[in-house]
Structures are given as C-alpha cells and as structure tokens.
C-alpha cells in the first residue's frame, strides 16, 4: 500500500493507491498538515512531472515540511501567551480558583485559600 508522509505525520493505507498526487495533496492537506506549495518527493527522489501522476502500491510520497525558524508554527499557540500580540482577546474561560495550603501554627489542619 502507498505511504504518504509530511513531517511526523504518515498514512499507510491502500485507499490511496491509484490516487493522483494532486488528489492526495488536496484530500490529505488538513489531516497531514501539508503546507501550501510543499515540495513533493516520490520514493526519496525529487519528483519531476505533473501531479496527475497516480500513486502505485509500492510508492512513498512525501510532502516536504519546511525547516523550523523563530518559533512561528501553524500549531495552536494557546499554550503560552504571546508577548507579540498586545491586543489579543482574553479567552472566554472562567477563572479557576488557586488553592494555597498554608501550614497553621497549631497543627489543626491546612487552610485553603481560593484566589
């Protein structure tokens, strides 16, 4: 079965056998996160030809992902706040309480403070 690769994403599925490179690029773009204009390698070699070439069951097709630079990425950036976007709207999520346990002087138990 044909193998399709983009970065760390891979597909091994006989359903792609016989599909053209153009069809695969279009149908797998979202699933494999294929960058616009990504260069194509066929069986580890630079592909020279038109993208209406159909994939054989032994073929390996790669859409080359660009080298990383400066931290810009299509990955979601919600993990850390961006210092470069001062007008970024606040997420619509209620604040969660922060529980701080303090050690009481008389050992009667912890005290939870919701902030």
């Amino acid at each position: 079965m044909a193998r399709i690769i983009c970065g760390t994403n891979e597909l091994d599925d006989a359903r792609w056998d016989g599909k053209t490179i153009a069809e695969i690029r279009r149908e797998c773009k979202s699933f494999l996160n294929i960058p616009d204009g990504a260069r194509v390698l066929l069986n580890d070699d630079e592909f020279v030809g038109t993208e209406d070439r159909a994939l054989g069951s032994d073929d390996e097709l790669e859409f080359v992902k660009a080298s990383g630079e400066k931290g810009y990425s299509p990955s979601p950036r919600f993990l850390i706040p961006s210092r470069e976007e001062p007008n970024r709207p606040e997420p619509d999520v209620p604040a969660r309480p922060i529980w701080i346990w303090t050690t009481p002087d008389n050992d009667s138990g912890g005290i939870a403070i919701a902030a």
Binding site: G7, T8, S67, G68, E69, K70, G71, S73, S75, L79
Partner: peptide, 12 residues
Amino acid sequence: SAGNDLTDGNVQ
C-alpha cells in the same frame, strides 16, 4: 542543522 517552531521542528 537544527531548527524548530513552537512545538515541532527538524534536524537536517
């Protein structure tokens, strides 16, 4: 050559 974006990258 090593480079990365936010959560992914590559080494050539």
